[in-house]
Design a protein around this nucleic acid. Structure first.
Lengths: 206, 206
DNA sequence: CTTTTATAAAATGTATACATTTTTATATGT
DNA sequence: ACATATAAAAATGTATACATTTTATAAAAG
């Protein structure tokens, strides 16, 4: 696994306190590599929102910012229903079946790691979105998801909205199966919006 | 000016043919630096859509993809009116005046370079959006703008929709001054949508 | 005691050199 | 002649070494 993946995973799991300033040499030693691959990884993580450029002072682990969460979920609320609508005509019964499998897997592993739940969650949405064949839109949505995951990792320690989230997921599938596309995109929008509000509230009442 | 800026500017001006594969050593020699800063720049440009990762074979200048343009403008159509709506309460008369100044500057320099027109255009929108104080949403919108500019640079050689675009800009300002926020966001949405369609059509009829 | 300036330490940026992987060209066998 | 295997090349990834910039420290002046 590349250094980029390792570092991201560690950031995701909250192994670096928000606000902390990371130095290249420090990370190089920590992971047993030279500074060159560290630089590459940092650059990527910075452009993906996992790290914030602290000017010339290096990079910092960004603080939790409720306003950022609001923005991320606002954008998702606007973009994901659109993407689902574009994908709907291509969603065969087989694809919907695969999506349901993913949901079931989430159900089973109730004591799953936050990272794993996040991965399955993303897989579920990707399963519904990818058939649209909209690479660019899909990539942007994926990026927003990833940026959200930093907060979700934090949230999952103190908040449990999994139950509600799951039932909404099943509702979306059901609507899609019945060809109620309008209905499905509507539920999806509310689903994302609700998740965002729960997260913001949790960040403001720690 | 950093190598990142120089390379991006050259890509923007179409100095590298779409589909061309760029090698690190080649670029290093071309710009008179070592491969290290080249790598940094390539990584950033890749994550911003200016270059596409060609797997392990290096990076490639992406081909013009009408579907990508459609996606970019679809996203902008959903996000920018939202951002303008959030900014509207903070748009003082002074700010609107500055926005108009930018429009006037675009009017004057009719024979401006494509890059300069693009920069002014972005400045105009940024002027209206920044007061919302929504850093994350703003950053995403900016990124979408930048990705569009690659195509606009190409378009500007064969298509002139500047006149219509300008008049719509003035309409938006006028609506904002009258407090017709709904009206302004609506014009903006149509404005972006129309620009996207013009661009897609031009790409399909070269 | 505070502020300023000079100096040292540390961190980032860049170049060169080496290692590993991937690609291409060549040779060999069927 | 074609396919496959093999060797040479070229390209990317990484480490070490050096240069430049930035930050912290300490000394000196007000």
């Amino acid at each position: 696994m590349g250094l980029y993946q390792r570092l991201k995973s560690d950031l995701q799991q909250g192994r670096f306190a928000p606000g902390r300033i990371l130095k290249q040499s420090e990370l190089a030693e920590m992971y047993g590599v030279s500074r060159i691959p560290v630089r590459d990884a940092l650059q990527r993580l910075k452009s993906e929102g996992w790290l914030s450029g602290h000017g010339k002072r290096g990079v910092a682990v960004p603080l939790f910012d409720p306003l950022e969460v609001e923005d991320l979920y606002l954008m998702r609320t606007r973009l994901e229903p659109l993407l689902l609508e574009l994908a709907a005509p291509h969603l065969s019964g087989e694809i919907l079946g695969r999506a349901e499998d993913i949901l079931d897997r989430m159900e089973i592993g109730n004591q799953l790691e936050a990272a794993e739940i996040g991965a399955l969650n993303r897989e579920f949405h990707a399963c519904l979105y990818r058939p649209a064949g909209r690479r660019t839109l899909f990539a942007t949505v994926e990026q927003l998801h990833q940026q959200c995951e930093r907060y979700i990792g934090y949230q999952s320690r103190g908040l449990d909205y999994q139950a509600q989230s799951q039932s909404e997921h099943y509702e979306i599938l059901s609507a899609l199966r019945q060809g109620e596309i309008q209905q499905a995109t509507c539920i999806l929008g509310n689903h994302i919006s609700a998740a965002g509000q729960a997260l913001v509230q949790h960040l403001r009442n720690p």
